[in-house]
């Protein structure tokens, strides 16, 4: 359902906004021809891309592609793009789905790796800050956290590249993407900087959220009970305090991860990682509707998935929301 709404909205924005600005089908098509194209060629392109059809028909074609697949003329012959087919890019003429699948591992590696880093660092910093409220550590980490949420990633990204790669030579050339399956070490070495930079942005929020949650939880009656039982402090904090704090953290995590899997736009651009986010930027810059649709749908799928998983986890963590 959500996917349906998302796809219609994307479609409508793409077609209605330029129409409202007074662009004709040919004007639209003129974006997808070479720089020497004449009116005749532009007109033909508009027909080929189906821009003259009513919006509903164009949308129908898109939906048909997903459920039945589409045929296209690639020159020497006709080719069938089997369902689920997200169509062909207006600009590069490449099929969209393989492009996305090709880029998915990169975004997955980036997002999941960063998620691990930011959860570990964010949550533990938050816990420590909460336990030592008012201490130097608390103030320092909360200050850094504030910097983390407010510094843009293209800034922290370029700066960290300059320091860790160019000056210190500690990490590899990020742009040389190597799949995990090929060489896990190089994979990690190349990704560590994007992970940390991206995680820095998020860890900050998690540290703050965890700290606030921990402060609240640690004053709960059941924490007092845990202590009264004679539990060592570490267990009180981790088993009783942290567990209860994790619920809001998980909610945020689900949202963040879902969005990120739809493309870590800035990070991928900054570090030249050819993932979904970079793809999305190019798609939008080029007004490439099939690519934009593909990216939006991927993002929507991931957001839905992530939320589903969070809901399930919720039930695991908090027995009160378990289905009866």
């Amino acid at each position: 359902m959500l996917l349906f709404v998302v796809s219609i909205a994307t479609f409508a924005i793409f077609f209605l906004v330029p129409r409202l600005a007074g662009m004709s089908a040919d004007d639209l098509a003129s974006r997808y021809v070479g720089k020497a194209a004449n009116d005749q060629m532009i007109h033909e392109a508009a027909i080929r891309l189906g821009f003259n059809d009513p919006l509903v028909v164009q949308y129908g074609r898109f939906v048909k592609g997903i459920f039945v697949g589409v045929d296209r003329n690639y020159g020497p012959g006709i080719e069938h793009c089997p369902a689920p087919c997200l169509g062909y890019s207006y600009v590069t003429q490449n099929p969209v789905l393989p492009d996305l699948l090709d880029r998915l591992p990169i975004t997955l590696s980036l997002a999941l790796g960063a998620a691990v880093v930011w959860v570990v660092f964010g949550v533990s910093t938050g816990v420590l800050s909460a336990l030592r409220r008012g201490s130097f550590f608390d103030r320092l980490s909360m200050g850094v956290a504030l910097a983390g949420v407010s510094l843009p990633i293209f800034f922290t990204g370029i700066v960290s590249l300059a320091i860790f790669r160019d000056q210190l030579g500690l990490v590899g050339d990020v742009a040389d993407w190597v799949p995990f399956s090929e060489d896990p070490l190089t994979w990690a070495n190349n990704l560590i900087l994007p992970w940390v930079t991206l995680a820095f942005l998020y860890a900050a929020g998690y540290a703050r959220l965890t700290r606030a949650g921990m402060l609240e939880t640690m004053s709960e009656d059941y924490i007092r009970t845990a202590r009264a039982k004679g539990l060592p402090e570490r267990m009180v904090v981790v088993k009783h305090g942290l567990r209860a704090t994790l619920t809001p953290v998980m909610t945020m995590f689900g949202l963040d991860l879902g969005l990120l899997l739809g493309g870590a736009v800035l990070t991928e651009s900054t570090f030249s990682l050819p993932g979904i986010g970079k793809y999305a930027v190019d798609a939008i810059n080029n007004n490439d509707l099939p690519q934009v649709m593909g990216v939006t749908l991927t993002a929507a799928v991931f957001i839905i998935l992530a939320n589903l998983i969070v809901d399930l986890l919720y039930a695991v963590v908090d027995p009160r929301v378990r289905l009866t």
């Binding site: 709960e220 009656d221 059941y222 007092r224 009970t225 845990a226 202590r227 009264a228 039982k229 004679g230 539990l231 060592p232 009783h240 567990r243 209860a244 963590v317 908090d318 027995p319 009160r320």
Partner: peptide, 24 residues
């Protein structure tokens, strides 16, 4: 701490808030 729970124990005022909601 070692004495707590073993040699001396406590029953709290509000059993709902004094027991951890996530553990049986």
């Amino acid at each position: 701490r070692r004495l707590r729970g073993r040699k001396m124990a406590m029953i709290f005022q509000d059993p709902l808030s004094s027991m951890h909601p996530f553990y049986s």
